[in-house]
Design a protein around this nucleic acid. Structure first.
Lengths: 238, 238
DNA sequence: CTGATTCTTACGAAACGCGAACGGTCGCCG
DNA sequence: CGGCGACCGTTCGCGTTTCGTAAGAATCAG
């Protein structure tokens, strides 16, 4: 009975917004060692950009920020997304906490906080959201149908036998068709690695092709974009 | 956002007993925003009076109170009513927790607690008590029929002899067919464990298969999703 | 033609699922 | 009250699958 890092939470992406470099450093170190992929922002503007572009699984947000106020950032993010937000409040004043609630924060921590507790809160909230999450809707694309909840991909109604990685890669591409990705992007989006051997992607792409292409030697669906990476095409099969 | 109110819990009355004004303020705000009607008391004596006169649906009770101790208040309330009680304990010591449970608390939270967590616990406990009064409806799925109230599962009309755990696991899967779960999710949903040995799930799955599959060696209903977990399939039997 | 890029194949370690068995606990029944 | 069996969490060993890595072949652009 060991309390190891549970895999389901591993590699979740956390965006931390904090202007104090020391706090930022400590918090991200702890979060990383707990298995999260951490992105950082030091001001509200960057935070809003990153929240929109990288769509993290959770946001840790300082209440006091240079430029846009933390509560305001919270409100704006909340206007566009339901991502869980933990607010860091400098004061333990009741007003502050209630402001935070009204801004749409899910939880708050009072500074100085223990980094260990931050990790626990992040884990606890993510665990909840995993359970409460209504399963992703299934959809069709060309000859393929993707059922993320069941982890099934069919071609022409016939179930494909993809391994876990192959499923992750191909379902990502099905969700983003007609868009070219380089290997690093795929490594980050599918593997949730910040760095790593790019040939890992190459090989997995090949293995997927083996199972989805009529002629894996001459791919027409999972196409190579020379000098860039790969793209899911559905020209031949609309 | 703090998890949205579900209608069946709307306007439930919650009595919160807490002497720290800040904690009280924050907690009641979060509870109110979740749709509960909140009454407050700052000491044990008032708490006992309010518990008797206003008969709340749930009580949140601080362990440390001026005057009468929280655990004692809990005992006295319990002596007269079955109202659910959540105890707030300052320390996470096991002794405290056991004292609390012996005093008749249904759940406990360790300070400092996240207000979000409090709301979730309150909702979860109230939902449970609602469910006990209105038993879940029986239903059919493929060749199986589940009667949650009677705790009976039939296959083709023939009653299966499942143990308690086996019933819990299989009925959960019957309620969520065609969805892949990893072992941690099952451990949490079926066992209500936060941590634990994942092989427990593996073995129980095996035992269930022994009783529901025609050929337990080659399962077609309770299927393994390699690298992920398990899924209830009903392809062959829709 | 040449260098860079991608493809293909193969290998082996690690991860994974499964079956069997063990032992502790609890309730039932003789 | 003592034994017996059901239940259930845990452990171990085995066979299989997976998947990152490396290394050489093939392909493409300029």
């Amino acid at each position: 009975m060991v309390s190891q890092q549970n895999r389901e939470l591993a590699d979740r992406r956390v965006l931390i917004v904090e202007d104090d470099p020391t706090v930022l450093e400590v918090a991200s170190t702890y979060l990383r060692s707990a298995g999260f992929v951490v992105t950082a922002a030091a001001d509200g503007f960057t935070a809003l950009q990153l929240a929109a572009s990288s769509s993290p699984d959770l946001i840790v947000l300082d209440r006091m920020l240079p430029g846009i106020d933390g509560a305001e950032v919270c409100r704006r993010i909340r206007a566009e997304s339901a991502v869980p937000i933990i607010l860091l409040t400098a004061l333990s004043s009741t007003d502050d906490r209630i402001d935070g609630l009204e801004a749409g924060a899910d939880d708050y921590l009072t500074k100085p906080f223990s980094p260990r507790e931050l990790v626990l809160r992040v884990q606890s909230i993510l665990r909840r959201s995993v359970n409460e999450l209504t399963p992703e809707a299934a959809f069709d694309l060309g000859p393929f149908s993707l059922d993320p909840a069941a982890r099934i991909i069919r071609r022409d109604g016939r179930e494909l036998s993809l391994s876990a990685r192959e499923f992750d890669l191909f379902s990502f591409l099905l969700k983003h068709p007609r868009q070219a990705f380089n290997r690093e992007q795929l490594l980050r989006a599918v593997w949730h690695w910040e760095f790593g051997d790019l040939s890992t992607v190459t090989v997995t792409v090949r293995r997927v092709r083996e199972k989805i292409e009529d002629d894996p030697t001459d791919p027409v669906i999972l196409v190579t974009v020379w000098g860039v990476g790969y793209r899911l095409d559905l020209e031949g099969t609309p």
